[in-house]
Computed example of a mutant assay.
Amino acid sequence: MNQLITIKVQDNQQLVSARELHKGLQLTTRFSKWVEQNFSDFEEGIDFSSVTTVTHQNQYGGTKEVQDYALTLGMAKELSMMSHTELGKIYRKYFIELERKWNDPKEVVKRGYEYLQSENVQLKLENSQLKPKAEYTDKILANPGLETTSMIAKNYGMSSVAFNKLLHEQGIQYRQGKTWLLYAKYQNKGYTHVEPFEYVDSNGLKQVRNTSKWTQKGQKFLYDKLKRSGIKPVVELVKEE
């Protein structure tokens, strides 16, 4: 598959440049106007993040920093579809194929194994006589603090976007506006803790929204429920290989 656009992997997520996508789609709308018209339905910090990039300013080699955005593949796919062009269809199919390959179980295990090696965890696993389940659950029980969804997702070799979707499919949570909430039967059980989260929106204004973090009890609940569905942390999949 020929590369249509540069893919950057960060925090176990595939990201693309908004400016590069805008250029690839050959849109005539000014970039800033395109952002203003199309980004309102997406959430900063989840679907995209604000970044700067350096471009050539003139023929003498001068450069300048310009506003850009790092987009998740899910957002890039929707933006491509929203362009209503033939190029948009091509890019959308391209992103769908990238997501399919990224979520292939073999690729998930491979990334998880590479992550463990990079963190020098594999050596500890080989020397340990504990069972995989004990290793993961002991890690949870040893940390009484709160944990973000993105960090838990990383333990499963998934992006936070994919993991949130998985929890929704498992009947654990649903999305209301820009916030993920637990279904009624899981509320008031001490699984999550809501904290205010400050961020800067695309207009440079400070905003505040609530974000949920998982308690120790909640993390154990996720482990047990996902395990019953055959979904295991990367550390256990590696042990089984």
Rank of each mutant, 00 (worst) to 15 (best):
E135L: 15
S32W: 04
W214G: 04
R100C: 08
L87H: 07
P105D: 11
S17W: 02
N12A: 08
L25R: 05
S150M: 03
D68G: 04
H22G: 05
G218P: 02
F163C: 03
L141Y: 10
H84M: 13
L205D: 14
R100Q: 13
W34N: 00
I90D: 09
G204K: 01
Q3K: 13
I172R: 04
G88C: 07
Q14R: 03
L123P: 03
K89L: 14
E240K: 10
N38F: 09
M75P: 04
P132Y: 00
L4R: 01
E36Y: 12
R228V: 11
N58H: 12
G177F: 03
G61Y: 03
D201Y: 02
Y60L: 11
L25E: 04
D138R: 09
V35T: 09
E86T: 10
K133M: 12
S128Y: 04
A134H: 13
Y69L: 10
T72E: 06
T85L: 08
E97T: 13
K220D: 11
T85V: 09
Y191S: 05
K213L: 15
D11I: 02
E241S: 12
K178T: 08
R111S: 07
N203Q: 13
M75H: 05
I172M: 05
T215K: 01
Q129A: 12
G190Y: 02
K225V: 15
M158V: 04
M158E: 08
K77N: 14
S159A: 14
S202P: 01
L15D: 01
E99W: 03
M1W: 06
G218C: 00
A184I: 00
E65L: 09
E20S: 09
L222G: 02
Y94A: 04
G204R: 00
I140P: 01
V194A: 11
S80Q: 05
R19C: 04
E198H: 11
K154R: 13
K213A: 02
G112W: 03
N210I: 05
R100W: 04
V235Q: 03
L182V: 01
K217R: 12
S118I: 00
L123F: 11
Q173I: 03
V234C: 04
A70H: 11
A142H: 14
I90E: 14
Y199R: 06
A162D: 11
K239G: 15
Q67H: 11
P132N: 06
L182K: 06
I5Y: 01
N103P: 01
N143C: 11
F163L: 06
G204N: 00
L181H: 06
P196D: 06
R92K: 15
S202T: 14
E43F: 09
N210E: 15
E36G: 10
Y91E: 06
A18N: 00
L116I: 09
V108W: 03
G24L: 05
N12T: 03
